[in-house]
Amino acid sequence: MRTPTKITLAALTLAVLAGCSSTGPEQPAAPTEDKKPATPSTGGATGAPVTQPQVGAKQMTPEEALLAQLKDPNSPLSKRIVYFDYDSYAIKDSYAPIISAHAKFLIANPKFRMLIQGNTDERGSREYNLALGQKRAEAVKRALMLLGVNEAQIESVSLGEEKPRMMGTDEASYAENRRSEILYSGEY
């Protein structure tokens, strides 16, 4: 059932390196604006709070350019969803270009952070689905790290079966819900 992540990494690596050298110098490194504060650290918890980019001054122009790039429907960066097979957390080959594009972007923009949310369809145990969603998010994170992205830039979380995109109980809806979603700083 579980096929390995068969991304054609050779091609990916080349693409990433090419992208790296071309975008290198004009990197603006503008501070990002957070719409929401960092995860509220509920009192008494022993956990380390998740670090988020600092709220900074409003030099919006280069920032806006980057965000526009992320949303441009012609750019592979606007593709933010990786779909999975039932009960599987293996990334399919067809997602290689999308993952490579996001890796390039993160390497070129080290101040940008990414949140990967893993999701499942509603069948089966909620807790098992929460764990499965975590694996799906982790799979995308690992693929990005193998392409040279700094781990500190990526956070992976699971929403299990709690946040479906489609409410139906047919295979089409289930397939739509078995996914990892990619969000950038300012989008979560």
């Binding site: 579980r2 992540t5 068969k6 991304i7 990494l9 050779a10 690596t13 080349l14």
Partner: peptide, 19 residues
Amino acid sequence: EQSQRMQGDLGNQIESLRG
């Protein structure tokens, strides 16, 4: 490039082996 490609391949192989 080569070492990153190797690393990627190894990563894939490890995932595959783990499965």
